[in-house]
């Protein structure tokens, strides 16, 4: 039990008559790089929304380090160490690259309003620490030279990277990546996956990622959960999932008997 970081216990999400996710159960172990895959509309993003508190599961609950996250607001879940990126990029567009990262670091800052207005040493020091840490993170992704540009002026691939940097700045225990390679070409994707594996080791993170591209997930994930129509149809190592008849059917359809 001790090495399970995140656990979903029979979570169900019902929108009116539609069961987007149906009593899904899975575990993500400490330090693991896990993948959540499935065809379009399988409910992958809905799972992420339940894990981060955007949706409250209709039934079932999510546990982080054995503690239930039920009823917590997204910002409270973020404080506990769960963070995410988005399938469609959601940066703070009008803000600079650096500001985007700084906001994510706020929860670790403790200074009051008066300290800020009076410019106390404590205020200046904590602003400086936050700034240095943000720049360090940006450097890993080679974004440090663009720190003061508006985030919306970055090319697409770098915006994706910035989302990851921003998520890392919350100092998470687990990072949920929603199609991090969406819209990237083959070599960019390959490079990104290496970076993800690298940050996992460097920050001692646990990673759960959603991906469409089967090849990519097979390359780096240690455990793969396959979702179809809101139901888990397979789970296991890449080899096991790859050979599974159910998975092939979900992706390619059932062969009609001729």
């Amino acid at each position: 039990m001790s090495d399970v970081l995140l656990e979903a216990k029979n979570i169900t999400m019902q929108f009116g008559g539609l069961k987007a996710v149906d009593s899904l159960a899975f575990q993500v172990k400490q330090g693991q790089l896990a993948g959540l895959i499935g065809p379009n509309g399988a409910g992958k993003t809905t799972v992420f929304n339940m894990l981060t508190g955007v949706y409250q599961p209709t039934s079932g609950a999510v546990f982080l380090e054995g503690q239930s996250l039920q009823g917590l607001k997204p910002y409270e879940i973020s404080h506990r160490g769960v963070t995410r990126t988005f399938q469609n990029i959601r940066l703070f567009k009008g803000l600079t690259v650096l500001d985007n990262v700084l906001i994510a670091g706020h929860q670790h800052m403790r200074y009051g309003l008066f300290a800020a207005l009076l410019q106390t040493p404590h205020f200046l020091q904590s602003e400086k620490d936050l700034h240095d840490k943000a720049m360090e993170l940006l450097k890993i992704f080679h974004l440090d030279t663009k720190a003061h540009e508006p985030s919306c002026s970055l090319p697409y691939g770098e915006q994706r990277k910035l989302e990851i940097v921003r998520a890392l700045a919350t100092d998470p225990k687990i990072i949920l990546l929603d199609e991090p390679a969406a819209g990237m070409n083959h070599s960019e994707t390959h490079h990104l996956m290496e970076t993800i594996a690298k940050i996992r080791d460097q920050f001692k993170l646990t990673v759960l990622l959603i991906e469409h591209d089967m090849k990519l997930v097979m390359g780096i994930c240690e455990n793969i959960i396959v979702l179809d129509h809101g139901i888990k149809i397979e789970e296991g190592t890449p080899q096991k999932v790859q050979g599974s008849q159910k998975v092939i059917e979900a992706y390619l359809g059932v062969e009609e008997g001729l």
């Binding site: 981060t52 955007v54 607001k73 997204p74 910002y75 973020s78 404080h79 963070t83 995410r84 988005f86 959601r90 703070f92 567009k93 009008g94 803000l95 500001d99 700084l102 906001i103 994510a104 706020h106 929860q107 800052m109 200074y111 309003l113 800020a116 207005l117 602003e127 936050l130 921003r166 998520a167 919350t170």
Partner: peptide, 30 residues
Amino acid sequence: EFLIFKTKIGRAMRAVSSNASVASLLGVNP
């Protein structure tokens, strides 16, 4: 001006104004 552009609460205000739900996911209480 100082409050909005130089302090964490000002940054948080700009973030919530830009996208409240994302700000919330990054640990800001909207």
